[in-house]
Design a protein around this nucleic acid. Sequence first.
DNA 1: GTCTATAGGCAGATAGAC
DNA 2: GTCTATCTGCCTATAGAC
Lengths: 195, 195
Amino acid sequence: MPVTPTKKEPGTAERCLDIAERLVQLRGFNNFSYADIARELGITTASLHYHFPGKAELGHALIARYTERFLAALGYIEHEQSDANAKLEAYAGLYADVLRDQRMCLCGILAAEYQTLPEPMRAAVTHFFDENQKWLVAVLTQGQADHTLRITGSTDELAHTIISTLEGAMLVARPYGEPAIFNSTTRHLLGSLTN
Amino acid sequence: MPVTPTKKEPGTAERCLDIAERLVQLRGFNNFSYADIARELGITTASLHYHFPGKAELGHALIARYTERFLAALGYIEHEQSDANAKLEAYAGLYADVLRDQRMCLCGILAAEYQTLPEPMRAAVTHFFDENQKWLVAVLTQGQADHTLRITGSTDELAHTIISTLEGAMLVARPYGEPAIFNSTTRHLLGSLTN
DNA sequence: GTCTATAGGCAGATAGAC
DNA sequence: GTCTATCTGCCTATAGAC
């Protein structure tokens, strides 16, 4: 076993996920092919099947990695920020980061294609939203307790609204090719909780 | 030319649009085929090409009809309701109607696939959102003037937020198969403007 | 791990008869 | 308007050599 003191550089499987992730976020799961990945990767489609038996498995791996990273970022926010307001600001920032290069949230675009996805991918998509919901409710509950947030209605309802607004803002902003629409919506959403 | 005193029943082209519209709203534009429509319609795919030369033309016709009907509904609301609050309530109601049978807003799901659409379809999608935006700004401006709505920030920003929230709420609610999530988000959104 | 070769299916589309 | 027949292209996937 070789000693690798420097950070391990990504193998083929990882680079495949990077490429596929970008393609799904741009076009959707059903609108890219193994050939697209193979071309960018410089190998054949047959080789791809060595790393991921089928497209369904690749898709599931995509969601798993995306969710893992996203939840890690939520944990980081929880650790770095103490103020509920700052947490929400950082949360919206995660979405703004995703929107770079006209990308849509991976699970957002998969939600649009939900009816065409294999079962394991479906479960992974709803799991992503469930975890987001849980995290937000905790933050909102905190902000409600210490009166740093102005909350009307239930925290559950508000958490849903926040997720919906951010996902919808990405969805609608993308055709216009400028993040300004997303940013103004985000500003309004957060502003309505702070005033 | 035959006299047709009773309402003309839909021809093949119209029924084709009905079927295609449902399929797009459920699966997306790239996830259904001429064969799907032909099967439901009881004719062959070759016959479909008589009514719509290609899928791009069919897609454009779908958006055109959908937009026409949606804008007609907005005009109807404008005519029936005088209160800005009631107009917004009715506007959200339109979205709730769309969500029936797990359907997504046609232009919302096309926004997700935007990068893969032919140019004419792209223009038609943004036109739909532009018209929604214009209508909402007018309603919000009215509500601001007569103090029936509590508006923070610009009406433009708020209009974007409303569209984003409703589109996002549909997107996220669909995987869960119950309109409850959509409805609670709608309630919260409208509530934040009325209080 | 990656290749060549190839299978088998389905997609959108066209020609031409009726 | 609708049909049969057919084309071409792309897709996912597999077998088997290296």
